[in-house]
Design a protein around this nucleic acid. Structure first.
Length: 685
DNA sequence: AGTAAAAGGTTTTTT
DNA sequence: ACCTTTTACT
C-alpha cells in the first residue's frame, strides 16, 4: 500500500506515527479521522494536504474547511513547509461561511441571489428582527415578548438544526412558548425583508450553498474540487453535513476530522450525530483513530480523562502519552473573585520568571464577563493581555456606525444601514428617518436611480441642529462614491467619513474621543483591502479579535497573556493553562441544567479547557461571588467546585488562596460576610 | 408629532 | 451593563 521507498521519505511523513501515516496516505474515498485532544490532528491534516499537492493534485482543486480563518491559514502554512517545490497557496481554505460567500459571489444567480449582496452578522440580524417586530406591532401590545436577540437565536437554531419552529421553542426556548404564532409571522417577514434589501445572514450562506448544489449550476460547483477536507467535524450542523454530502457524494474524496468528546457548539445547531453517523452515511468509509497525545503531561491527561470517563462516549478511545511525568494539576480554592485574580496574576508572573513567555500561557473561562475582575488586576499590575471571545471590536456601536455608512455605499438597498446612519444625526429619530427614506425611494423611482444618488444631491428640510451634520453626511457619502471610474480605496473612504462622526459622536457617546480614535484603527485595517465590498464582507465573516484590550509596559512589547472563552480556545494549546470560575453554576452553567444533553455539553466544555494545557494546569474556584441581578443590591452566595471535577479529585493537588484563618471550615456557619453592609442594607430596605 | 431623557427588566457560548 | 418601554419636553 505504501510505495514510498525508505531512501526518500517525504517530509510530510517524517515523524508521524502509524495511525497518522494511515490518515495521510489514505487514497480515494471517504475518510473519518477520530482525533483525540492533542493527537496531532493539525499536523496530520496539513501533511495530508501536502501529500495531495506533492502527488500532483492541483492546489486549487482542494477544499479545506476549518472552524476559523486562522485555523485554515495555520494549516496551509504548515502544509507549505512540508513540500519543497510546489506551492500550496492556492488551496481553497476557510470556514464554511467564507467559502459559501466566495462561491455565491460567482454562482449566486443560479439560486436567485443578486449581485453585490451584503452579508449581515448576528447582531444585524437581531436589529432586523427588532424592526420587523415593531412593524408588526408586537412591541407594545404584547407583554414580555422575547428580546430581538432571542428571536434571532430561535430563528438561527431552527434553521441550522432543521427542526420545526414549535419543536425548537419547546425544547430550547420554553419560556416563549406563548409567542410561537407571532414568531412564525416575524420569521416570514424577516425572510422577505432580507430579499428586499439584498442581504443574506450567516445561515443563508449555508442554505444557498446547499441550494446551489441542487441547482443547474450544481454540477459546475461539484466539479471544482477533487478533494474536500473538513476540520472540527463534530461541530458542524445539519446544513453543513448536507453540503458535504451533496458536494462529494457518498463515495467521494471527503476527509473529515474531529473528536466527539470535544463537541461544544450544539447551541449553534451543531450535531454530534454528524460524526457519529459518518460511517453509516458514507458506506465504505475508512476510520482512523488517533489516540496518542503529544501535548499534555500524564498528570494532566489523567485528570481530563477522569472528567470525561463519567460520560458515555460513542467512539471509544483511550488517550495515552509518552511524555515524562509533570506536576499535578492544582485545584485552587479561592476566597473570592479578588483572590482568584491575585492568584492568577501571581502564577502568571511566576511562570514568566521561570521562562514561559506570556503568550504560552492562557486563562480560560465559560463566559466573556468572567474575566472582568481579572482584567482589572492584570492592568493594575501591568501584565499585557489579549482577550478572545466576549465583546468584539465589531460589536461596538461606533464601529457599527461607520461600517453602516460603508454598507450604504456598497448596497444602497441596505435598510438596516440607512436607519442607523440617518439616526446618528442629532434631532432625527425613527419617524423622520422613515419619512426621509420613503421620500428618497419615491424620487429614485421617478429618476430611475438609486436612493443614494438622490440622497447626496437632494435638499431636505430638517431641524436646525441637524442641518450641518446632514450636509456633511451628504457631501461625505458623495465623495466616497467618487466617479464611475475612480472610487477611493476603503481606507480613504473611512477617513472622509470621520468629520461627520466628529459632528455626531459628541452627542451620542460620552467617550467620543476614544471612539473617534478607534475609527483610525479601522481605517488602518481597511487599508489592507483593495475594495470596500471585500473589506465589508471579510470583516463580517472573520471579525478581528478586540484591539483595545492591550495594556502593559513597553518592555514586554509583543508578549501578552491569552484570555479566552473556552469556546474560542478550541484548537489552542499553551504550556500553562488556568481555568477560572470553575464553580458549579458556571461550569455547568445554570442555564444548561434543564436537559441531559446540555449538561453533557458542559462537561465536554470543561474537558476542552483542561486538555489545552501542556505542562501546567490549575483550576480556580472562587468560593464567594456576587450576583449582580439588579444593580441595586449585590447578593453574595457560596459556590462549590464544578460537579464534573468530582471524579477527578484524586488527580488534583488542593490549594487554598486568600481564605482567612478563622473562616476555614466553618463557611456554612457564617452569618454575614460584611456585617456593616448588611446593617446598612437593612436600613435602606 | 417626534425626540431625548429616565425608568424598568434581564437566560451563556459564535460563524 | 444593556436594551426596551415610559414619560417629559420641544
Amino acid at each position: 500500500m505504501f510505495d514510498v521507498s525508505q531512501s526518500e521519505v517525504p517530509s510530510w511523513l517524517e515523524g508521524l506515527n502509524d495511525r497518522q501515516r494511515a490518515a495521510v496516505l489514505h487514497g480515494d474515498g471517504p475518510l473519518l479521522v477520530i482525533a483525540g485532544a492533542g493527537s496531532g490532528k493539525t499536523r496530520t491534516l496539513a501533511s495530508r494536504v501536502a501529500r495531495l499537492v506533492d502527488e500532483g493534485v492541483p492546489a486549487d482543486r482542494i477544499l479545506l474547511l476549518t472552524f476559523t480563518r486562522r485555523a485554515a491559514a495555520e494549516m496551509l502554512r504548515r502544509s507549505s513547509a512540508l513540500i519543497s517545490n510546489r506551492s500550496v497557496g492556492r488551496v481553497w481554505g476557510g470556514t464554511f461561511h467564507a467559502v459559501a460567500n466566495r462561491l455565491l459571489r460567482q454562482y449566486g444567480a443560479a439560486v436567485g441571489l443578486q449581485d453585490g449582496f451584503t452579508v449581515i452578522d448576528q447582531a444585524d440580524a437581531a436589529s432586523l428582527f427588532g424592526m420587523i417586530r415593531t412593524d408588526l406591532g408586537y412591541s407594545g401590545a404584547t407583554r414580555r415578548f422575547p428580546k430581538k436577540e432571542t428571536i434571532a437565536a430561535i430563528y438561527s437554531r431552527t434553521v441550522n438544526a432543521r427542526t420545526p419552529l414549535t419543536e425548537t421553542v419547546e425544547e430550547r426556548f420554553p419560556w416563549v412558548i406563548d409567542h410561537v404564532d407571532a414568531l412564525r409571522e416575524i420569521f416570514r417577514g424577516y425572510t422577505a425583508r432580507k430579499k428586499d434589501h439584498n442581504v443574506v445572514d450567516y445561515d443563508d450562506l449555508l442554505l444557498y450553498w446547499n441550494a446551489l448544489l441542487g441547482s443547474p449550476a450544481g454540477g459546475t460547483v461539484r466539479g471544482l474540487f477533487d478533494h474536500v477536507l473538513v476540520d472540527e467535524y463534530q461541530d458542524t450542523n445539519r446544513s453543513q453535513a448536507e453540503i458535504l454530502r451533496s458536494l462529494c457524494g457518498t463515495d467521494g474524496n471527503l476527509t473529515v476530522v474531529g473528536d466527539d468528546a470535544q463537541a461544544i457548539y450544539s447551541f449553534r445547531g451543531a450535531t454530534v450525530e454528524n460524526i457519529l453517523e459518518f460511517p453509516d452515511s458514507y458506506e465504505g468509509a475508512t476510520v482512523v483513530t488517533l489516540e496518542q497525545n503529544y501535548r499534555s503531561t500524564p498528570q494532566i491527561l489523567a485528570t481530563a480523562n477522569a472528567v470525561m470517563d463519567a460520560s458515555p462516549e460513542m467512539f471509544p478511545k483511550a488517550l495515552w502519552t509518552e511524555r515524562a511525568a509533570g506536576r499535578m494539576p492544582e485545584l485552587v480554592t479561592c476566597y473570592d473573585e479578588a483572590s482568584q485574580a491575585t492568584f492568577v496574576a501571581d502564577r502568571v508572573l511566576e511562570h514568566f520568571e521561570a521562562g514561559t513567555p506570556l503568550r504560552d500561557q492562557a486563562v480560560l473561562f465559560r463566559t466573556g464577563h468572567h474575566s472582568a475582575g481579572l482584567e482589572i488586576e492584570l492592568s493594575r499590575r501591568n501584565i499585557p493581555f489579549i482577550k478572545y471571545g466576549g465583546l468584539r471590536f465589531l460589536e461596538a456601536a461606533h464601529i457599527k456606525d461607520l461600517l453602516s455608512m460603508l454598507r450604504i455605499l456598497d448596497n444602497p438597498r441596505d435598510e438596516l444601514a440607512w436607519n442607523r446612519v440617518i439616526q446618528m444625526i442629532p434631532g432625527i429619530g425613527p419617524a423622520t428617518t422613515m419619512k426621509l427614506l420613503d421620500h428618497l425611494d419615491g424620487e429614485a423611482a421617478d429618476a430611475r436611480s438609486d436612493r443614494l444618488a438622490v440622497f447626496v444631491t437632494g435638499r431636505f428640510p430638517v431641524v436646525a441642529e441637524a442641518r450641518r451634520p446632514m450636509e456633511e453626511l451628504q457631501a461625505a457619502l458623495g465623495d466616497c462614491r467618487g466617479s464611475e471610474t475612480a472610487e477611493p480605496g476603503p481606507a480613504e473612504q473611512i477617513e472622509r467619513l470621520i468629520p461627520f462622526c466628529v459632528l455626531t459622536f459628541e452627542r451620542a457617546y460620552d467617550d467620543s474621543t476614544a471612539r473617534l480614535a478607534d475609527l483610525g484603527q479601522l481605517a488602518a485595517l481597511a487599508s489592507e483591502y483593495r475594495t470596500r465590498s471585500r473589506f465589508l464582507t471579510e470583516i463580517t465573516l472573520d471579525p478581528p479579535a478586540s484591539t483595545s484590550d492591550l495594556a502593559g509596559p513597553p518592555h514586554l512589547d509583543d508578549d501578552y497573556l491569552i484570555l479566552s472563552t473556552i469556546h474560542s480556545a478550541k484548537g489552542g494549546e499553551w504550556r500553562s493553562v488556568v481555568v477560572i470560575h470553575a464553580a458549579d453554576g458556571n461550569i455547568p452553567s445554570d442555564m444548561a441544567l434543564s436537559d441531559a444533553a446540555g449538561l453533557e455539553e458542559e462537561r465536554r466544555l470543561l474537558y476542552v479547557a483542561l486538555t489545552r494545557a501542556k505542562d501546567h494546569l490549575a483550576v480556580a474556584v472562587p468560593q464567594r461571588f456576587y450576583h449582580k441581578r439588579f444593580a441595586a443590591s449585590p447578593q453574595h452566595s457560596y459556590a462549590l467546585p464544578s460537579r464534573f471535577l468530582d471524579p477527578a479529585m484524586e488527580h488534583f493537588e488542593a490549594v487554598s488562596v486568600g481564605i482567612p484563618q478563622h473562616d476555614e471550615g466553618q463557611l456554612t456557619d457564617t452569618i454575614g460576610e460584611d456585617p456593616v453592609a448588611d446593617v446598612l442594607e437593612d436600613l435602606w430596605r
